[in-house]
Computed example of a mutant assay.
Amino acid sequence: MVTAGNHEIEKLPVAEPEPFKAYNARWRTLYDAGATPSGDNLYYSFDVAGGVVHVVMLGSCTDFATGSAQHQWLQHDLAAVDRSKTAFVVALVHAPWYSSNEAHLGEGDAMEALLRGASVDAVYGE
């Protein structure tokens, strides 16, 4: 499974004003499958091992602020996980939300609150 990163953002506003057009054309994710379809190819979830593991693929280069479509979807997705049947919940994101770069301090706070609240077992970033 894949998740988009900063190198997939189209930077030619005149020739290609749609961000992630090439990524979306080349990578078909499971955004419209499963119990909680996201409706966006940039973030989605799926179950593996017969539902023992719930995997969440997040988009660090698309809006994830409180109230954003991704934030609302993640809240709904995590609430739908039955932890009596799903032993592990893991999340993957391209750019880690913790960085010593002052320009990015606090970026992931809204998402972290959801992940902690749902007792996500591990979050992996590049």
Rank of each mutant, 00 (worst) to 15 (best):
T86F: 02
M57F: 02
S68P: 09
Q70L: 05
M111C: 06
S99F: 05
T36I: 02
V52P: 01
G67T: 03
S100H: 09
Y31S: 14
A80V: 04
V14H: 11
P13F: 13
M111Y: 01
V55K: 06
G59V: 00
L42T: 11
P96T: 09
W97V: 09
G39D: 07
E18V: 14
W27V: 15
N24Y: 00
P37A: 00
V89R: 01
G5P: 09
A87K: 15
Y23C: 05
S84R: 14
N6V: 09
A87L: 09
E10I: 01
P17A: 11
G106M: 08
A118N: 04
H94L: 01
G59P: 07
C61R: 13
L105R: 10
G59I: 00
S68M: 07
H71W: 15
L12D: 15
A65T: 13
K85F: 00
V90H: 10
H76N: 06
S84Q: 13
H76P: 02
A80F: 06
F46P: 02
G108D: 10
Y43G: 01
E112I: 00
R83T: 05
V93L: 09
R26V: 06
H104P: 00
V2I: 03
S84D: 11
V93F: 04
H54A: 11
Y23D: 08
F64Y: 15
T62K: 14
H104S: 12
G39S: 07
F20C: 10
A95I: 08
T66N: 09
L74D: 04
A118P: 07
T62D: 04
E107G: 05
F20K: 11
Y23I: 02
R83C: 07
H76S: 11
T29V: 05
G106V: 05
V93D: 05
A4N: 15
Y43F: 10
A15L: 14
E102R: 13
S84F: 02
Q70S: 06
G106A: 08
G108Q: 07
P13W: 12
K85Q: 13
A33T: 09
L105F: 12
V56M: 08
S84H: 10
R28F: 03
P37Q: 04
V53S: 02
S60H: 10
D32I: 00
L115I: 12
N24R: 15
E18K: 13
A103Y: 07
T66A: 14
K11D: 13
F64A: 12
Y31E: 14
L74S: 03
L115C: 08
K85W: 00
K21Q: 14
L115R: 10
D109G: 04
K21G: 03
S45N: 11
L78N: 02
D77F: 01
E18Y: 05
L42M: 13
G108P: 05
A33Y: 09
S60L: 03
V55M: 07
S119K: 14
N101D: 14
D47G: 12
V53N: 10
D82Q: 05
T86C: 12
A4W: 06
A80S: 15
G34H: 08
D32S: 08
I9E: 15
V81S: 04
L78E: 04
A15I: 11
E107N: 04
T86G: 08
A15N: 08
V2P: 11
E10C: 03
Y31R: 07
R28E: 07
A69N: 07
N41I: 06
E107M: 12
R28N: 08
